[in-house]
Design a protein around this nucleic acid. Sequence first.
DNA 1: CGGAACCTACCGATCACCAGGGAGCGGGGG
DNA 2: CCCCCGCTCCCTGGTGATCGGTAGGTTCCG
Lengths: 201, 201
Amino acid sequence: MSYGDAMTSRARGRGTERRAEIVRAALEVIAERGYRGASLAAVAERVGLTQQGLMHHFPTKEALLVAVLEERDRWDALPAGRLRLDLLASLVEYNAMRPGVIQTFSALLGESVTEGHPARGFFTERYGRVRESMAEVLRAEYGERLPGGLTPERAAPLVVAMLDGLQYQWLLDPGSVDMAEAFRDFLALLGGAPDGSPGGS
Amino acid sequence: MSYGDAMTSRARGRGTERRAEIVRAALEVIAERGYRGASLAAVAERVGLTQQGLMHHFPTKEALLVAVLEERDRWDALPAGRLRLDLLASLVEYNAMRPGVIQTFSALLGESVTEGHPARGFFTERYGRVRESMAEVLRAEYGERLPGGLTPERAAPLVVAMLDGLQYQWLLDPGSVDMAEAFRDFLALLGGAPDGSPGGS
DNA sequence: CGGAACCTACCGATCACCAGGGAGCGGGGG
DNA sequence: CCCCCGCTCCCTGGTGATCGGTAGGTTCCG
């Protein structure tokens, strides 16, 4: 009985593909149990491996987390450069259909504020960058002074905070918070609400 | 050698006081390690007990968490009824001086979105209530239509989200985010920024 | 034949929790 | 007044499960 029953025969691009599978599984497990609650065994089982088989690809649990975080970085590296605010709203709408990713990183963000959490540095640095690029987006959209009277640098953390905060409320009770709509409401506020009533429902 | 060396002799109000000590310690430990990462032994050590001594007062770990959450409920039950927005801003300022509490509940909120977390129900219900009472506050302040054109019900989740989101950014990097200032910026936005520049640096 | 991939077996640490006992105090009956 | 009883409080000791990680082997492919 060889262990490659249905695997070795198939064309496997090499270990790289396996690693990607593992990272995907880790993302799921972290979404369900958080990083501290996620066991290597649970991740391994999801890809049909033993825990030690997994550790052949990622020597430590933290290494796996790093891979997950890097995946995230790669994921939103694209829109970092050029992005418009209305696109951001659509992105929120899109994310609302993929609860897994949001939940993973909301859980990680929550954990990361605790002492000595391995993702803390990642998030700290990331939020710094995100605020900067958000300020750029705002500057491109509104110039040096937003309609509300704020500078891009002062408004940027607000936009970021709104995104995160809405995510938590939505994750806790998707039925009672329409993330995309709420975020558009906020954007209207930021952009100096053009008229009285922004929309239906 | 009795274990009550410095304890039994002192006037001890009875077990109630001990329970309060334990809850306080649990709050600290949860702030540092999250709920899943917090061990009963660590909490016990902080109040000078063994883990089993602690379990005399709280039969399970979850019971201890419930006590912590109830403490929170009691804490912000006061301003729930009547509150004004500018008071809310001051509250943010006050909270910024007590990072422990914020960190505890930010960590718990992050964990609570994971599957089967014992605090999930608490937060879901709590946020529902908070949104409602926030809508009332907004209605009292601005009436049925806020300056931005939103109804109180639609603006409420935005205010709550802003509070939470800012907390995370602030916890990650207190130096680069002024929570109270940022929140005031947001309130200015909500209240229809009166003029061009709300304030200095 | 060498290395990548994955295994079995094992390790010490830590976890929440259980079982049972002993110290101290307060109260009620002799 | 004293003594004993019962309750609260907290301890020692131990259990099974699970954790991340180690050691060393085996299979398969190029």
